[in-house]
């Protein structure tokens, strides 16, 4: 329990552990944007989080996607906003098309690499679905009665999520700028000159962040905080390769096409009992927590293969990009 705070421990989660939750509610927030409310199975509160935090969602097809939490940290449930990405390789597509209220969903986290810092005032810049972490930040800053400005761009007004919610926050100077009405965000106007005591938080697609970084070059170092989201821009794995995540250590390993999962695990220092390395003895059995194993052994029963809850790591591989193993 070394890495857990006492309050985490009481709530029964470490930030690294994968756990089951359920989709308690879902709503359409804009064209192609769905928000999901996530709740624990027992009804107890999910772990606490702070604005800027994200979670891992482990999808039934084995893909793992990160989403920023965008709800109210004081609530027992979490909320994420999911954009249907046109080039989705099964992440957002799976959530939009295959998941429904009541379904179980595997989560891990929260973790925060984009923390709100103390400042006299705030400039928030969001592009598209990048509004999600910013939304939670605005909620906190508005509640604290601090001055804030939001510059929020999107393709079209109807594609921009949470507009009503934003309008309900106090103390803000809000600029909604759909590209088809206003063109690109007028960064020069807001960032052309360093403003004393102001912290800038930006989240959105790469080109927006690049442009903001460029404008902030003359600002005091440390003024700009940004989170890039380009989850699906990662190059696909080579053919035949797959990734495994070890749930207990959170370690990620890539299994190349020509190597066995057992060999990769051993090389990374994990001892797994084994004997035949041919899928016959069954001694290298490992529990699968998420993902779709590709069974190449000779000894699991049809039921065990179908259920997908275990695999023999000496010969079996993965039909999904990622497997989460109970190791």
């Amino acid at each position: 329990m070394n890495d857990m705070t006492l309050s985490d421990a009481k709530r029964g989660h470490s930030a690294d552990a994968v756990f089951d939750a359920r989709i308690a509610a879902a709503s359409v927030e804009a064209d192609g944007v769905l928000s999901l409310h996530l709740a624990s199975l027992s009804g107890s509160a999910l772990p606490r989080w702070t604005p800027g935090a994200h979670i891992d969602v482990i999808l039934p097809n084995g893909l793992v996607r990160q989403y920023s939490l965008c709800g109210d940290p004081d609530l027992a449930t979490w909320r994420i906003g999911v954009l249907r990405e046109p080039a989705s390789r099964g992440g957002s597509k799976c959530i939009h098309d295959e998941m429904a209220v009541g379904d179980r969903i595997q989560l891990a986290g929260p973790r925060n690499n984009f923390k709100l810092v103390d400042a006299e005032r705030y400039l928030f810049i969001a592009g598209g679905i990048g509004i999600t972490p910013i939304l939670a930040m605005i909620r906190q800053v508005a509640a604290a009665g601090l001055p804030w400005t939001l510059l929020y761009g999107g393709r079209t007004r109807s594609s921009m999520a949470f507009l009503d919610e934003i309008a309900g926050f106090a103390g803000g100077d809000v600029h909604i700028a759909p590209q088809d009405e206003c063109g690109l965000l007028d960064l020069q106007r807001f960032l052309g000159q360093q403003q004393q005591g102001m912290a800038v938080f930006c989240c959105g697609p790469g080109p927006l962040i690049d442009a903001v970084e460029d404008k902030c070059r003359t600002w005091m170092p440390g003024s700009l905080h940004r989170e890039r989201f380009a989850p699906s821009n990662r190059p696909p794995l080579p053919k035949g390769a797959f990734e495994v995540e070890l749930a207990r250590s959170r370690q990620r390993l890539t299994v190349p096409a020509h190597r066995s999962l057992l060999a990769v695990l051993q090389e990374a220092g994990h001892s797994v009992t084994h004997s035949c390395t041919a899928g016959i003895c069954g001694t290298c059995l490992v529990k699968v927590l998420a993902g779709v194993p590709q069974h190449n052994d000779d000894v699991l029963s049809d039921e065990e293969r179908e259920a997908g809850g275990v695999m023999l790591v000496c010969v079996s591989r993965s039909d999904s990009e990622l497997l989460v193993l109970d190791l």
């Binding site: 041919a278 016959i280 001694t283 000779d298």
Partner: peptide, 13 residues
């Protein structure tokens, strides 16, 4: 004990 599982399975196969 671990290896015997292999030997028994292999023989049967």
């Amino acid at each position: 004990e671990t290896d015997e599982k292999f030997h028994v399975g292999l023989g049967r196969q």
